[in-house]
Simulated scan of single mutants.
Amino acid sequence: MSPLDTDDLHRIFEKLDLNEDGLVSLDELRWLLEQNGVHNTSLDELKLLVGKTSLDRLDFLVFYDAILKQNMGDQSEEGEESNDLERDLAKAFKVYDLNGDGVISCEELQSVLSQLGFLNEHCGWDCRSMIKRYDVNSDGVLDFEEFKIMMLITNS
């Protein structure tokens, strides 16, 4: 499976979302998998794999990323590039995780962005909204996986 960029994934999501409710159902996801040679996947198996009955755009990107990682071997050049990217993202994550607790809080994000000159009184950025957008598990902070998604989507 070759990696798709974020624009490709958004187009796929839109085509799968037949009823245009902003969600891809397990039926729609199963159809996509069958079109790509993954047969005999039950809805129950998909629900266990996905952990819910439908995916929003961000969930869909996370699901794709998980499938891609599963199918890509670490010995390939793509795997090495992926490992390099992972190391770079881990270093960047540590810059934002000021207290080293493994998550980025709104305060930490605001502090680092201010130090970097990206936030000022005229900016209008809301760190809580930024975190909420990528906070898949809704715990109010970004863990490394959520941070990765944010950085990869933002930079695509």
Rank of each mutant, 00 (worst) to 15 (best):
L109Y: 12
H39Q: 10
S25E: 05
L68G: 03
D88E: 12
C106G: 12
N120Q: 04
L49Q: 11
N83Q: 15
D84G: 13
L116S: 09
L43F: 05
E121I: 04
D74L: 13
S82K: 12
V24E: 10
V141Y: 08
H122Y: 14
Y96T: 00
L109Q: 04
E86R: 09
L43E: 06
K91W: 15
D74F: 06
N99Q: 06
E34N: 11
L89M: 07
L152M: 14
T6K: 10
L46V: 03
Q75H: 05
Q115D: 05
L89W: 01
C123P: 02
E77P: 08
K94R: 14
N71I: 06
L68P: 01
I67D: 07
G79S: 04
L109W: 02
K132R: 12
L29N: 02
G51H: 00
M72R: 12
Q75W: 09
K69F: 10
S76N: 03
V112S: 03
N99M: 07
E20H: 10
E86Q: 13
L113V: 02
S105M: 07
M72K: 09
N155Q: 04
Y96P: 01
V136L: 12
M72N: 11
N137C: 13
L89R: 05
C127G: 03
L29Y: 09
M1E: 12
G37T: 01
S54V: 00
L61S: 02
G124E: 02
E80M: 08
E28A: 03
N36A: 14
L61V: 08
D5C: 07
I67C: 14
M130G: 04
S76C: 05
L109K: 15
D5I: 09
I12H: 07
L48Q: 08
L142I: 00
D65W: 07
V103I: 10
K47T: 00
L43Y: 09
M1C: 11
E45S: 13
V95C: 01
K132L: 05
E80S: 02
D8K: 04
F63L: 08
E86N: 11
M72P: 02
D88L: 05
L48H: 13
L23Y: 14
P3A: 15
K15L: 15
I131Y: 05
